[in-house]
Design a protein around this nucleic acid. Structure first.
Lengths: 249, 249
DNA sequence: GTCTAGATATCGCTT
DNA sequence: AAGCGATGTCTAGAC
């Protein structure tokens, strides 16, 4: 109960990682990059082995009401007189190791307290992010328009890599900016690439294509105003074709 | 154990909100906006009253390894033959109510299972960051340079509000884009405002100031290349002055 | 290490 | 309802 944060390594000995689950009536204060306060209520407190703390309510998204990110340490202390009068039984102070961020939990009543050994997690395997979309579009470059050919993915320029460089049926260069969701940011990014590339006589004229699964109206307006063509990609359809291709082998 | 998700309202009766904590050896698959897989390992599963599920490891940040956001429902089913052979005891399927997103948890061994009544949370009270920085800069407008005067905060234009509009010592307009961290995005945003405002004969010429607690090198280069002045703000110093002022009252 | 771009972002506010 | 900006963003990859 009065145990503090459990570092994974102490004096060279590797202790098993443990997560501690506490359900308690508590109030919470955070002082760091901002100040925040949570009034007294019953909440779930998750204390991870690296010292990090999550304060969750029963609802909302995956984001805790409040938290402290690692590296940090938890110390438990007795409440002072004022805190005792307010009903606090324990004060948990979570201090960030590098910054001066602080999370203070005033624990009024502990309703549950248990520890569980989880071990190290093998981690998440992802599929279907922008990288995958880029691979698919490179394989299905005709989606940019008839007669298009791939020059290369991640074409390097002085200000960063262009997602895809292609040529249209006339042999002119086409720079493609690819997004999962097409926002104004992406149009600005492509615009910077186009400005730079069109100064290169070996490449110019370079046309721009803004390709995304979904293009926001404002982004489309800005793009078309700048002569950038917009292409909406159907990920499922592209993946479907990719799967069918895979099945041939 | 075999209980499914508990909606907060059933047949007009309001049930108490409950959070369920499960520690289990499990593998997890997500199919929705992307595909993701978590190999078999021991993890913390948090099931909230709104049906949402968080899959946490003992470490990392506040973000779960995987999750399903509300509104969604959890159903528990028996594993099929292949799943039983793989060692699964139960299959939890979490389905999003509006999209077709799906989270499937293959539960191999339950190590802990408890439920806790939390009630409705009063919610977080926040104070700080960009709003505060904007208020401080409006009060300390001299930080833009000698002789500057405030016109107004959140000066509305056709494409959105400019954080601060001021005048310099010559009476010329100054548009200020304020950020906690000064990134290229912020420079682009300010550039769009300046283009628009400089078309307005009542305002033009409008100078630009990019003000932030921290300005990234690339952002500074881009800003200065466009004739936008960069001002680094010391939040603690500004807050200190603000506090001293407050103490006078 | 630092820095940059992407994200199943989430959250809140305004139109 | 939909769009947009901010976030204590977090995270992974590049340099």
């Amino acid at each position: 109960m009065s145990e503090t944060g459990r570092p994974a390594h102490v004096a060279g000995i590797r202790y098993p990682q443990r997560v501690r689950l506490v359900v308690a009536r508590c109030s919470v204060d955070y002082a760091g990059r901002l100040s925040a306060h949570l009034p007294l209520a019953t909440r779930l407190l998750v204390l991870k082995a690296d010292g990090s703390v999550l304060v969750h309510s029963d609802g909302g998204s995956y984001k805790p009401l409040n938290w402290m990110s690692p590296p940090c340490t938890l110390t438990v202390s007795e409440p002072d007189e004022a805190q005792t009068d307010a009903g606090a039984q324990q004060i948990w102070t979570v201090t960030h190791t590098k910054t001066s961020d602080r999370l203070i939990v005033s624990v009024h009543e502990v309703l549950h307290d248990s520890q569980h050994e989880l071990g190290v997690d093998p981690g998440l395997q992802k599929d279907g992010v922008e990288a995958h979309l880029q691979k698919l579009l490179a394989e299905q470059i005709h989606r940019l328009g008839e007669g298009h050919t791939l020059v290369r993915r991640e074409y390097m320029t002085a200000i960063g890599p262009v997602d895809i460089l292609a040529r249209d049926s006339d042999g002119h260069s086409v720079a493609v900016e690819l997004k999962r969701r097409g926002d104004i940011d992406g149009v600005e990014q492509l615009t910077r690439y186009l400005e730079l590339m069109n100064r290169d006589p070996l490449l110019a004229p370079v046309a721009g294509v803004f390709a995304a699964q979904e293009i926001k109206p404002q982004a489309r307006t800005l793009a078309e105003d700048r002569g950038i063509r917009c292409v909406v990609l159907d990920y499922d359809e592209m993946r479907g074709i990719d799967d069918s291709l895979s099945r041939l082998f």
